[in-house]
Simulated scan of single mutants.
Amino acid sequence: MLRVVHQQGTVTAAAEALHLTPSAVSHHVRELARELKVPLLEPQGRGVRLTPAGRLLVDHADALLARWEEARADLESYRAGMAGPLRIGGFNTAISGLIAPAAGRLRHSHPDLQVQVRECDSEESVDLLMAGKVDLAVVEPVEGGPPPDDARFEQSPLLEEPHIMLVPADHPLARAASVRLQDAAAEDWIVADPGTCDHAQRVRMLCAAAGFSPRIAHAAVQWPAIWALVANGLGVSLVPRLAEGPEGQAVVRVPVSSENLPMRRILTCVRRGSRRNPLIDLGIRALEEAVRDHRSRDDWPRSA
């Protein structure tokens, strides 16, 4: 509870995350402070923060939980067969491009393994990992996410994914073998509104790095909507390679040239110590196989 209070910043938010009442959380933290004979929380504005003693205790808790995950992983190795469940969380394009193919592969190779997939953004995936509600998360580095050296997690690179320019089929850029972002500087763009998704901010940052601010004519978040707007000649967009739209749309995906190739890093994230769990290891290896399948496709930019 103390770790969740530290993470959420208020007792009320921690109680909501733990599905408890605020009074129950306050009671347990007070009992812990009384048992340890040190104050653990102190006021900060409208919320609370950990005292130095509280932060020290959380550091030790992270180490203890990592050892507990290692113990669970070792015990799992003694289980006969490969029974589930294996709970995997990930964002939209990670599910469609990587997690779903990996889960399908596991279903055929290990029919007794129960793979459960949950769609959630990267920040929520980390929260679910902390709460023990998922075992493996596929995430991208986002503002507010855990740093690489976070003691609570083990994060490993899974894929550096290129972005691809999406243009109408009759657009002049559709005939190019590759394009630069600045080649579309004068075009109308289709990008989600700021604050609606991480991809919206990324597109603006990549265009700024290429030396221009995109003229955003239409706002859309879902990939089918973006595909439809581009197919009807209303603008261009920059999409991650794993993004998929409806088949039959009059769009062309053009690789962005290597001189300013925009990449997105995708990571696997697990609770520290749990990587040795054979079920989690099996899930990660299935994801890595899905990555190899994607990279073997003809339309994946070779310059990456």
Rank of each mutant, 00 (worst) to 15 (best):
S258H: 05
R204S: 05
P214E: 00
G233M: 07
L238H: 03
F212T: 00
R204A: 06
Q249H: 09
N232W: 09
E259Q: 14
N232K: 13
F212G: 02
S258Y: 06
R241S: 14
R204G: 00
N260H: 15
A250W: 07
P224C: 15
Q249T: 15
P224A: 12
G248Y: 11
S257P: 03
V230S: 10
F212H: 08
I226V: 14
V236K: 11
A231H: 11
P255S: 04
V239A: 12
W227V: 07
V256M: 10
S258G: 00
L206F: 14
P214F: 03
E259D: 14
W227H: 12
A220D: 05
L242N: 03
E259N: 07
H218C: 01
A217M: 02
V256P: 07
A231C: 10
E247N: 08
L238G: 06
V230R: 09
V252R: 13
A210Y: 03
G211Q: 01
A228V: 04
P214L: 02
V254K: 00
G245D: 03
C207I: 08
N260F: 11
I226F: 01
P262M: 08
A210W: 00
A228G: 14
S257F: 09
A225I: 09
S258L: 08
S258Q: 14
V221A: 02
W223T: 15
R253F: 10
V254I: 01
L234D: 07
S237T: 06
A250I: 09
F212I: 03
L261P: 10
R204H: 03
N232V: 00
E244F: 14
I226D: 04
H218R: 03
P246R: 07
A219E: 14
V230Y: 13
E244V: 15
G211C: 07
E244C: 13
L261G: 15
L229P: 00
A220I: 04
S257H: 12
M205H: 12
G248D: 13
V230E: 04
P246V: 07
A250C: 04
R241P: 02
E244I: 15
A219D: 09
Q222Y: 12
L242P: 07
M263K: 15
W223V: 15
G211W: 01
S237Q: 05
V251H: 01
L234H: 12
A228F: 10
L242D: 02
R215N: 12
R253M: 08
M263F: 12
P224Y: 14
L229F: 06
Q249L: 05
L238D: 00
R215Q: 04
P246K: 04
